[in-house]
């Protein structure tokens, strides 16, 4: 087995972090709604990757590995916080040391998280998760299938049923809206 030296393995990890940190952080954020928890989750995933592999270049399909790890970490997180479906803006109070521009950006991002969660809230978890992976993370159905370890046909049907329910929800909301005019 190829074993990288500590220094070169760290270099390898730096490259992997540079390539995947944005998408993994977004992934975690759109599951947790928390900047701090997302950062912790992503850090833990990279550290686990480093410890569990002698050389990062030999990891087969590192993208799938990372997404699977972060998906599991987010599921664990949700389990721990299952009674808190949404993080509202009061809960999202930010550390006082962050300046106002950061606060403003983070509030906007948290509002966007809340908006999307409200849209997906009525769907069964297995459908909403496929939609998140496809739309938020821009993963293909085949990639989603390998991360969730479910046949591609099942992934597609979950996506379709989820989208159909959202269409109905949007149509219904439009009817209510028009009815008020």
């Amino acid at each position: 087995m190829e074993v990288a030296s500590g220094h070169s393995k760290l270099k390898e990890l730096e490259n992997v972090i540079t390539e995947f940190q944005d998408q993994l952080f977004r992934f975690a954020f759109f599951r947790t709604g928390s900047f701090d928890d997302s950062q912790d989750i992503v850090q833990e995933v990279f550290i686990k990757l480093y410890h569990e592999n002698d050389s990062l270049t030999t990891v087969i399909n590192i993208k799938q590995y990372l997404y699977k790890s972060i998906s599991n970490a987010c599921i664990d997180y949700q389990r721990k916080r299952k009674n808190l479906k949404f993080m509202n803006l009061e809960q999202a109070v930010l550390p006082t040391d962050i300046h106002e521009k950061d606060v403003s950006d983070k509030l906007i991002q948290t509002e966007e998280y809340t908006r999307l969660e409200r849209l997906l809230n009525d769907l069964p978890n297995e459908q909403s998760e496929v939609i998140r992976l496809r739309v938020f993370d821009n993963l293909s159905f085949v990639e989603i299938s390998s991360i969730l370890e479910i046949p591609v046909t099942t992934i597609k049907s979950r996506f379709k049923y989820g989208i159909d329910k959202l269409k109905d929800k949007i149509t219904a909301s439009k009817e209510v809206h028009y009815g008020m005019q």
């Binding site: 940190q21 944005d22 952080f25 977004r26 954020f29 759109f30 900047f35 997302s38 992503v42 950006d105 983070k106 906007i108 991002q109 966007e112 999307l116 849209l119 997906l120 939609i131 739309v135 938020f136 959202l166 949007i170």
Partner: peptide, 10 residues
């Protein structure tokens, strides 16, 4: 509608 309008910064 599902496409995030803003993305969090890492």
């Amino acid at each position: 509608m599902l496409k995030p309008k803003v993305q969090p910064n890492v």
